[in-house]
Design a protein around this nucleic acid. Structure first.
Lengths: 222, 222
DNA sequence: ACCTGAACACCGTTCAAGT
DNA sequence: ACCTGAACACCGTTCAAGT
């Protein structure tokens, strides 16, 4: 006997929950059916096949990450806030974002953020190619950082890695360096510091609503 | 009748070839056996199971990317050369590197490069925590860039993506910006430019064997 | 030491048949 | 319109049996 009114959204919800709680490998059509209390084939009626089920899940994640609300008093602060909220959103659904990444849609996922960055770059007084360069620089930086960070977290114990480094003549001769490199990274802080430094650098000299409207010759203002 | 002397290396070679030519999905135990002209179960004798076969493939890739020969007259040039050769190595075996990434070993893969960077940072006169910060900044930048780049290449046609952006008031009001953002990125150039800018910025003011000992006037001074 | 086929439990997917 | 079980071709893996 069938349970009543299985809907496509219900299927997607259950699939997303499965991925969230047990990882992508746990998402099999049969297990999903069991979870929903239906026959495997019902799922096919609603979502076509596994591939398009994953597509839908990925599309959903892309949409979820599409809501950007920049916060802060200055364009620089708002750009940093965009970066931070993106990073937080990614960390809340790592598996799903990994699936987005596997499907090559990471950039697509960050498009709303790109639009927000364009807006802020403009507000900061950047125009034309310089604005485009700034937006891309920040975008690459943020996306790249998050990917690297995710990777570091999933990485198994790198037993030989750290110690191997100390055997280098350079590290051996420089105690503080060795200690600094062996200490765990405060990734939150490194992230914010990097983004802020980059944004400050990119906006330096641009005229905008940053206060006094001073104009200068910044590194990227050529 | 068995073919003579199947070796573990032979299995790994065939597996790597399969991944290189047809992608990771094509690497099934049965197909691999067919490719080698042996029974499926022979493969199990040599490599244990599929998981450890993949482990071996990944370990091999990590080792392949471990040979770093910095080139250039100055520490800055040599750091950039490390970044460039890493990027090239990744692009030669995208599937295998993706497998390394999936297993969370990207950072481990870049460790030899980190050592090289430590050496050059030292040669440039950086010490202690400042040297560590510089090395990590470059490492995150390079790894992140390569990951983002790979992702962009695999991404399907982003039909709504580009046009959607132009509808933004900011982009519409700024023709050069819109054109710049719609133009394809010269990723090779953007990569080298970014790395060079970062390295210059990081090394600025440090005393080292950079030639005549002249110190740059600013992070991005050409 | 190395290889083999048979067998098991699991996949995704199709299809004719139900209501 | 929606759901079902049976069946198919494919997996990875184990194991007893060969040489």
């Amino acid at each position: 006997m069938a349970r009543s009114a299985l809907s496509r959204d219900e299927v997607l919800d259950a699939a997303a929950a499965l991925v969230r709680e047990h990882g992508p490998a746990a998402l099999t059509m049969r297990r999903l059916a069991a979870e929903l209390g239906t026959a495997v084939t019902s799922i096919y009626w609603h979502v076509g096949n596994r591939e398009s089920l994953l597509d839908a899940l990925v599309a959903r994640t892309v949409a979820d990450l599409g809501t950007i609300r920049p916060q802060g008093a200055t364009p620089a602060e708002r750009m940093v806030s965009v970066a931070r909220s993106l990073r937080r959103a990614v960390r809340e659904r790592p598996h799903l974002v990994a699936m987005v990444h596997e499907r090559g849609l990471t950039e697509r996922m960050f498009l709303p953020a790109q639009r927000a960055l364009v807006h802020e770059a403009h507000a900061a007084g950047l125009r034309g190619a310089a604005a485009a360069r700034a937006v891309r620089a920040v975008q690459f930086q943020v996306v790249g950082y998050v990917l690297v960070e995710r990777n570091r977290e999933r990485a198994p114990v790198q037993s030989p890695a750290e110690e191997e480094l100390w055997r280098g003549e350079d590290a051996e001769a420089d105690g503080p360096l060795a200690r600094a490199l062996s200490a765990p990274i405060d990734t939150e802080r490194l992230f914010v510091d990097s983004v802020r430094a980059l944004v400050d650098g990119l906006l330096a000299g641009a005229s905008g609503d940053t206060g006094d409207g001073a104009v200068g010759r910044g590194p990227y203002s050529q």
